[in-house]
Amino acid sequence: MAQVVGGYFTSHVPAIGGAIERGDQQEAYWKPFFDGFPPVRQWLAEARPDVAIVFYNDHGLNFFLDAMPTFAVGAAARYDNADEGWGLPVYKSFVGHPNLSWHVIETLVEAEFDITTCQNMKVDHALSIPFELAWPDVGAWPVKLVPIAINTVQFPLPSPRRCLALGQAVGRALRSWKGDERIMVMGTGGLSHQLEGARAGFMNPEYDRFCLDNLATDPAALTAHSAEEVAELAGTQGVEILNWITARGALGDAPQTMVMRNYHVPISNTAAATVVLEPA
């Protein structure tokens, strides 16, 4: 039977990609953030995942407002990154796991989640940068990918409660998968930040702390707010915490052990965080 080995959560700020490209990891501005990744890599070396289920949000690479799914599950054999228009390098492609994707899709629809399925789906920096941080300098990614995109662009967004429930259903799918893969879960984005409006530059360490303090042991605490309230608390792009909440749901109902966490302000306009959780 498949085993869910744990979860890796990190910010996916595009500027991180620029810092990697320039080799700025040890620069004073970047070091506190990049110092969070040797422990992630050590955990990955011990956890030895074969597949990653990644909850992220598309920033206008694959999805436009003509057709905007609330939840979109990839079911492709291969996923490509591409030019996003503002100068990041094009990142390596990913090998998919279509059979596991369809098992997740079947389980979700049986559980009455009316998701969108994608056999062709470009994946953006929100997915590539967390991989670049976890596995720098590899020729090919060491895990297969099942991407699940969540709408954080256009309100109405799914509620935190719905996101947790979807993640929990994905977790049931993973634990009922007949393969023998070691499966990791990823949630990307956040934490608090806001790019637009007169409140641009807003961050909220107090709310971020609330999220980090409850993620491992009481994720339901994060579902007391509406998506709009999350935007008020975390900033307009801080709603990416929805990706974290969904990923945490996929780890199951039992409390998880916080292996490590790193929090640093600011990276670009963002309060950046990195977390690893594993089953207690």
Binding site: L212, D213, A216, M258, M260, R261, N262, Y263, V265
Partner: peptide, 14 residues
């Protein structure tokens, strides 16, 4: 940012 929040922490009780 409170020191208990900021920076790198290991283990279940940061």
């Amino acid at each position: 940012v409170d020191p208990a929040l900021g920076g790198l922490h290991f283990g279940p009780d940061p």
